[in-house]
């Protein structure tokens, strides 16, 4: 932003030196907390996420390239509110919140309300984000993240985050969110709705994929036509869910 002279702030505050913000942890109740200076690479290498939060585990190695992952943060990425940012959709699919702190204390803002538009977030000028909070799962968490990129380290042409919590053979909760196919991260709620309260089947996977594609608002550009991007939403949603269904069947 600054290199391209889109932004020329008068003052920059380095939050790297604020103590104890580089953590990510899982509380006893399964709530996941990611501190403001926790790097993408910490999440990529984390042993906590594989089983407890597979959607995050799937997304972490797909953000940018290894060099950027050593420096960039999940919270910073959500604050940046880039419609092409991967974490914002993962957090949206998980119903996560951002904890903001300012002179008047802390408040929690759901990520879906936090991202206001391209490069705009809901923080007040005197607040910073200190933590991202992924709520306690309502069952066994499962999910995935798929991203079409032209090259490793490229921003998404299309990204799809799917997160479900399984209760027995049923889907207890579902979240689907889309990267890079609209002016901001898109919560594909109608698609997620199709899945909740019933078992995963080839039929409702197809319907969810269709609804996710409908929720997308892509634009044609040099990365691909709008139709193509919509199709990728359809394919990715279906591929993630079909993968989950298959592993469920294999486990049974």
């Amino acid at each position: 932003m600054m290199k391209l002279r889109f932004a020329s702030p008068e003052m920059l505050v380095d939050i790297n030196e604020i103590p104890d913000l580089d953590y990510h942890r899982v509380d006893d109740d399964g709530t996941i907390r990611v501190g403001a200076v926790c790097r993408h690479a910490d999440l990529e290498r984390s042993s906590l996420l594989d089983t407890r939060q597979p959607t995050m585990a799937a997304a972490a190695p797909l953000v940018a390239d290894p060099i950027v992952r050593m420096r960039g943060t999940l919270v910073g990425s959500v604050c940046h509110a880039d419609p092409q940012g991967d974490w914002a959709s993962v957090m949206t699919a998980l119903d996560a919140s951002i904890i903001a702190q300012g002179p008047n204390g802390r408040r929690s803002i759901a990520v879906r309300d936090f991202v206001l538009g391209p490069f705009q977030n809901a923080l007040a000028f005197d607040e910073i984000a200190v933590e991202a909070v992924v709520p306690t799962p309502r069952g066994m968490p499962a999910g995935g993240y798929l991203k079409l990129e032209r090259r490793v380290g490229d921003y998404a042409t299309v990204g799809v985050a799917v997160a479900i919590d399984r209760v027995g053979s049923q889907v207890g909760r579902a979240g689907i969110a889309l990267t890079a196919v609209g002016p901001a991260t898109i919560a594909a709620d109608a698609a997620a709705q199709k899945l909740t309260g019933r078992p995963l089947t080839a039929d409702n996977i197809g319907e969810a994929a269709e609804l996710a594609a409908e929720a997308a608002q892509p634009k044609s550009d040099h990365r691909g036509s709008a139709d193509f991007k919509r199709q990728m939403v359809r394919v990715f949603t279906s591929r993630i869910l079909t993968g989950l269904l298959r592993s469920e069947e294999e486990a049974a």
Partner: peptide, 16 residues
């Protein structure tokens, strides 16, 4: 010009 920086104009890396 679309391709005026390395976000739009891509250089290959060892990864892909």
């Amino acid at each position: 010009c679309i391709g005026s920086n390395f976000t739009d104009y891509l250089l290959p890396t060892a990864w892909e």
